[in-house]
Simulated assay, not measured.
Amino acid sequence: MKSVFALFIALSAFQPAFATTADEVKQKTSDAATSAANYSKEQKDAFQKEMETKLAEMKKETAELKKAAADKTGEAKKEMNEQIAALEKKQESMSQDLSKLKKSSGKAWNHMKDGMSKAWDSISDSYAKAKAEYAEQK
């Protein structure tokens, strides 16, 4: 019985720490929502910057492939130019998606992130294929 009484006294000493007003709950909820929004924006900005950097590098490498294709002749030149044209089309689509991403917010950007990641994988595969074929034809 003494231990129950001691527990009761101990808990009553901490009661003010558990007491929360409606205003405190609203403030804590607001603070949490603001923190979550800021974190999401930071993630979006980082993803956007990463994709812009990757795309710029890929465009530079594609320009180099285009110069190399100019030295080719016949069927090899035709195939490389077709692959480069397809790659440039995908890059343009990615640029448009990046523009949309810049304007997106909230949950929409998470959905766009998934789509853009898949699109990037496709572009990367196309570039790797074109580069490999160029290497074989050297």
Rank of each mutant, 00 (worst) to 15 (best):
M58V: 14
E64K: 14
Q91G: 04
T29V: 13
F47E: 00
T34P: 04
I84R: 05
Q15C: 08
K77T: 02
A69R: 04
E64W: 03
D23P: 04
K113W: 04
S93T: 15
Y127D: 00
G74T: 03
D31G: 05
Q27Y: 06
E61H: 05
A130P: 01
Q96N: 15
S122A: 14
A46D: 08
S40V: 01
M80H: 10
A135T: 11
L87A: 02
A6M: 12
S30P: 03
A130S: 10
S104K: 00
E64T: 12
L101N: 04
A56C: 03
M80Q: 15
K138L: 09
L101Y: 10
A46P: 01
N81V: 07
I123K: 00
E52D: 04
K129E: 07
Q48D: 14
A86K: 15
K107F: 12
A46R: 05
L98H: 01
L87T: 02
A10D: 12
K118L: 00
A135K: 10
Q83L: 06
K60S: 12
K72M: 13
E88R: 01
K100C: 04
M116W: 00
M112Y: 07
K131Y: 11
A6V: 11
S30I: 11
A130C: 02
A119N: 12
S35Q: 08
Q91H: 03
H111W: 07
W120A: 01
Y134W: 10
Q137M: 11
Y39W: 08
S12F: 14
D97L: 03
S93R: 13
V4L: 14
Q91D: 02
K49S: 05
I84Y: 05
E42P: 00
L7S: 15
A22M: 13
K131Q: 15
P16D: 05
D121P: 01
S35V: 06
K107I: 14
A22D: 15
L7E: 14
K103S: 13
A68V: 06
A63N: 06
L7D: 15
E61R: 09
L11R: 13
L65H: 00
A68D: 11
A70M: 11
M116E: 01
Q15G: 07
F14L: 12
E133F: 06
E57D: 14
A70L: 11
Y127S: 00
A86F: 05
E82N: 06
A69M: 09
K107Q: 15
E79H: 06
Q15L: 11
G115P: 02
M51H: 04
D114P: 07
